[in-house]
Design a protein around this nucleic acid. Structure first.
Lengths: 280, 280
DNA sequence: CAGTGGTCTAGACCACTCG
DNA sequence: GAGTGGTCTAGACCACTGT
């Protein structure tokens, strides 16, 4: 870079537009110059102007609203709080600050799409300790807010555990699935949350109505009973432009102190039996 | 879809290649057909074949290694565990299963890039309860694994708090920054983790050597003392193809039970003073 | 130096929406 | 019907890497 060589034309154009967007000269929702206007202004063909806009689209800064034009993306994220299943109210006053305003706008119940009996995908079977021939019950739903798809939510339960319970039926469970598990003698008292970040699959793009340049967070939740038996595995797909994931933590009771400045500590390579490998 | 209209040619080609990749007919690391070969095979021009490959690149499935060709992306994620600052060892046996193998491969200490005095960006000032004219100390680092940049880590502290302490100097802190805070009478006992997902900025692409189609998770950690004073704000940028974020949780001591099946509960719109708004 | 991908031009036609 | 973006062609030249 900057070694005498000049950047490609489309990058220069993209850089100029990006600067206008990040500096708010072009505000969220504003229309960009048309491809022809951009091409004229910079003395290039429309294809090159288009390539510049394509860069910004893939960065998630710009959306195309055909055939009206290109517009600066508007983002409006909602708080997603995995801990709310056990702690509906935040435990700390600090947490309240993150949630103090407009916490109740546009709520709609999530919609149960259906219940299926399946041989679970590998990633689920491993987490539920199921053999490849054992079946699981999956409740699939898509959550909507203001009529827009917001996230998907697939909860898997071992078939042997939930057979005959309300979990098997595609209706809302008024008392909540966790309460049903407790009544089945399999109260979920611990959980592990995994969060992975990637670009969506075409199927996810379709189900969640995602536009280009929007990554997703995949939140996998595995719930365990007191004696360490996995009883449920939930896979949530959260569009990146619609969510902030929030956790709150407290320092555990002191035994021996071990501190590190860097959160995350030393990374561990994911090669174990529970890890997903290969291409995405 | 499928309403008589046929998909664009480049989409058809992209679909065919994607199927080969997800079915492992084309394995991670394998080379794709050259653009010319693809064009010939499908009777289109090179530009169209190129457009098809571009789709897969932006989905993160394919990388270009110029001028050798295009290859199926190889992903290898490491575990990132925010809780390890307080709990170096997992609390539950289930957690061990996620970390049982090759936990120590390729470790290298993170590298302290520098310490600066700055007026913190808005997102940090809000979280640290600083006025816009108060300064903060920021320790910037990039973590490397096997010589590759792995994530960035910027920790901000209120200047008035850490003045004169080892936190001000760009050397490693053997006892850890948390211990220094404790010695300063500001022990961090609670924390809030925020995780946001988006495409990287050009600067992040450069610093982390990201290729196209790789989103990032932004992990913001705010640490609080016993009396609720924020004492540090860390912003980590984690490339999506290199990390899985892991949390473990236990059900809090029972008071009144309130269960919900859906983790995340009802989303809350992020409009508060701590939220970041607008474009990305 | 052969072969790859990266950039760019100069056209063309289409589908859709808005006035 | 005018104007927008979406798709596609048929070329051209360049930069870089491996042999």
């Amino acid at each position: 870079m900057a070694r005498g060589a000049t950047a490609p034309l489309y990058q220069q154009i993209a850089d100029e537009l990006r600067t206008q967007i990040t500096s708010r000269a072009l505000r969220a929702g504003a229309q960009l110059p048309t491809e022809l206007a951009l091409a004229d202004k910079h003395g290039v063909t429309r294809a090159t102007a288009r390539q510049a806009i394509g860069v910004l689209i893939n960065e998630g800064l710009v959306v195309s609203s055909r055939p009206r034009g290109h517009f600066v993306r508007q983002v409006d994220r909602m708080i997603y709080r995995p801990q709310s299943e056990w702690r509906p109210q935040p435990a700390s006053p600090e947490m309240d600050r993150f949630m103090e305003e407009q916490t109740s706008l546009g709520r709609e119940p999530s919609q149960v799409i259906g219940v299926e009996l399946v041989t679970p995908p590998d990633e689920v079977a491993r987490r539920l300790d199921l053999d490849s021939d054992q079946t699981a019950v999956v409740r699939r739903r898509v959550r909507f807010i203001d009529g827009m798809p917001f996230n998907t939510n697939d909860s898997y339960y071992p078939m042997t555990l939930v057979e005959g319970s309300p979990i098997m039926y595609p209706a809302d469970i008024p008392q909540g699935a966790n309460q049903v598990l407790t009544e089945l003698g399999a109260e979920q008292v611990r959980a592990i949350d995994e969060i992975e970040v990637r670009m969506p699959t075409p199927d996810e793009v379709h189900r969640l109505d995602l536009s280009a340049g929007v990554p997703v967070a995949v939140h996998r939740l595995t719930g365990y009973t007191h004696d360490g038996r996995p009883v449920r595995c939930t896979i949530n797909v959260l569009p990146g432009d619609r969510h902030v994931i929030l956790f709150e933590r407290a320092k555990p009771a002191p035994e021996h102190e071990t501190d590190s400045t860097t959160p995350g500590g030393e990374p561990h390579r994911v090669d174990g039996s529970l890890a997903d490998r290969g291409t995405q």
